[in-house]
Write a protein that binds this DNA or RNA. Structure first.
Lengths: 341, 341
DNA sequence: GTCTGGCACTCCCGGTCCGAGAGTGCCAGT
DNA sequence: ACTGGCACTCTCGGACCGGGAGTGCCAGAC
């Protein structure tokens, strides 16, 4: 009984699968019957004792069935999870639903809903990051003589708008001139380079527009830098109430976290963002409120990764299905973005 | 014991106030002690019997205290609720928080959070309606030779974007020409008039741009009409889990409804939208899932009403405080929008 | 050595029972 | 018209208990 062998792994798989399906601790008898292992319950019990010793499963209390630990789930996804691809019908639905999208906002909204619906969990989608895109066009619109609106369109189709209070009254010609200037300087430039360019912007304007150009530059800078606070969309909060998903007590902190961009970004982001698909189980999130939560995320983007999307559910989730769904949706959204390059 | 008199009203007020504060049925003894009515518990009991007969209060079960019915709350807000104004500190906080807003999106986001925080309920804010605003500016940006992005900016500061697939390849001059055309025709026009103008748009373009202009017109039409499906922002969902706010069972349908724009619009909107402030209690919402829910809404906008905002909570809510908060925030947001006229 | 059937043991879960407490309705008295 | 008293009702929490599920271990079979 010293080492891990194939049958023990099968037992672990059985426990994970049954527990996910029934939400109840699974006993030795159930395992030996429902999964054709060809051994008796007593034997399974021995294997279970080993698995418990090794930290893959645990008993809620003496003389109850076993449930997987975080470590158990980890082993399951790493070595046992054969991802089950989406059905043809699902594939078609994804395709159709997303291809009806009307603009970038709509793509994100549809994506997040789709994910929530496919996985029956809470879905989170990060808007394409500004940092990695470049400026397609800048538009200035005068609202009042001393108030401008600046609209920035990026090549990922994202639109940012900001107000600018100008120190002096502007006429239509001034606005035209400024518009020409900022577009000349910034059009086509990656946002990463923008701060450097913006710093010199005011100096390039005619002297009498100097103060206004400075004000504009300040706002532009905020737009491209400060607002690295990325936006996210969330859907499927109602899934949190699925029977047994989260005990009522732990629901509140989760709901609160879902309204905190910062926390969401932390869950989605993390440094290892080049991985195609990441599964973070329980403690691996390093957030107290998410100790019982698994987050499955994938990067997406045309070519390079411009954002992340994912779903968030109890550690006892359908890993193969969830992973497949997230991967498929991320891929498809990437394709869509590719078309607008 | 035939008619309603002042003391009975006071008893009702006492019951509402205590019940809202404690979440527990309130008995005759509590009423006679905590509120200085100058009569004994037995007398209060008689009044309670009357109030129950008249349908303003009810007993959860024989020999428990009384709780207000929807009818009771209604009477309370109509005749007994003196709204208690926000504290100076709250006022300052509202002022400061909202005046930091950076663009329209930010105004809405901040507003909805503020409302949620002030009232400890779920807050909902409708984006300024497109219908009642007019076109400030239209911008065309070519993404690929056969793909345009059209951005529409309204005088409420709202920005709408859409993709247009063009039937023919366009060069930069074509785009300029089209931009000039649509702006000539639409700038300054109320969105209500836009469909009529758009219908004639294609006819005004040079013959070779005809097909493209038609495609563009089609999308513009969608933008101003079809997308009357108004957007809303929601915050404070976590407040649903406040102890005793909603029993776990009824939480799910509410969470689901919060993700359905249609339902939210129904709750916010309704025909009587010119009223300054509306309180809809329980059944008055005419929605099954919201039978235990009160919705407090107010219209906002510069001059005329361009949208609604409100909060949504259990019928047992702090009416005076909630009403005051919604009213104050709505007024202040209106002021802000006024500044951008 | 590995597996299996048997068996005693542990613990949870749901049901019942009961007493305390809160609140009521009614009545007789002021 | 109001009040104090009283019997009654109903809920709530704790104690108690038996059934059931699952385990660990052991002795025996292959």
């Amino acid at each position: 009984m010293a080492a891990m062998d194939d049958r023990k792994l099968e037992v672990l798989r059985a426990i994970v699968e049954d527990y996910v399906a029934t939400q109840e601790p699974v006993g030795s008898k159930a395992v030996s019957q429902r999964h054709a292992l060809g051994v008796s319950a007593a034997t399974v019990r021995n294997d279970m004792a080993y698995l418990e010793e090794a930290g893959y499963i645990q008993q809620p209390h003496t003389s109850a069935g076993r449930i997987p630990t975080a470590k158990g789930y980890r082993l399951f996804v790493d070595r046992l999870g054969k991802i089950k691809p989406l059905s043809a019908a699902e594939r078609r639905a994804v395709h159709r639903f997303l291809s009806e999208a009307i603009d970038l906002d709509d793509v994100v909204t549809r994506t997040v809903r789709l994910l929530a619906q496919l996985t029956h969990q809470v879905a989170v989608v990060q808007y394409p990051s500004l940092n990695r895109s470049s400026v397609r066009h800048l538009e200035l619109v005068s609202l009042t003589p001393t108030r401008l609106m600046v609209v920035m369109i990026t090549d990922t189709g994202r639109v940012e708008q900001r107000y600018v209070e100008t120190p002096e009254e502007l006429n239509e010609d001034n606005v035209l001139e400024l518009r020409r200037l900022v577009n000349e300087q910034l059009q086509g430039k990656p946002l990463a380079d923008a701060p450097r360019i913006i710093a010199d912007l005011a100096g390039l304007a005619r002297p009498e527009l100097h103060p206004t150009a400075s004000a504009l530059a300040r706002v532009l800078l905020e737009t491209v830098v400060a607002r690295t606070e990325e936006r996210v969309a969330v859907a499927g909060a109602a899934n949190l109430t699925r029977p047994g998903n989260f005990f009522a007590g732990s629901l509140r902190p989760i709901l609160e976290a879902l309204e905190e961009e910062v926390v969401l970004m932390q869950l989605l982001g993390r440094a290892d963002s080049n991985a195609l698909l990441t599964v973070r189980i329980g403690d691996e999130n390093h957030l107290d409120d998410f100790r019982e939560t698994t987050v499955v995320t994938a990067g997406y983007g045309p070519g390079s990764v411009v954002g992340h999307m994912g779903v968030l559910g109890p550690t006892r989730m359908d890993y193969p299905g969830t992973i497949a769904a997230v991967r498929a949706v991320a891929r498809y959204v990437s394709e869509i973005l590719e078309q607008n390059r």
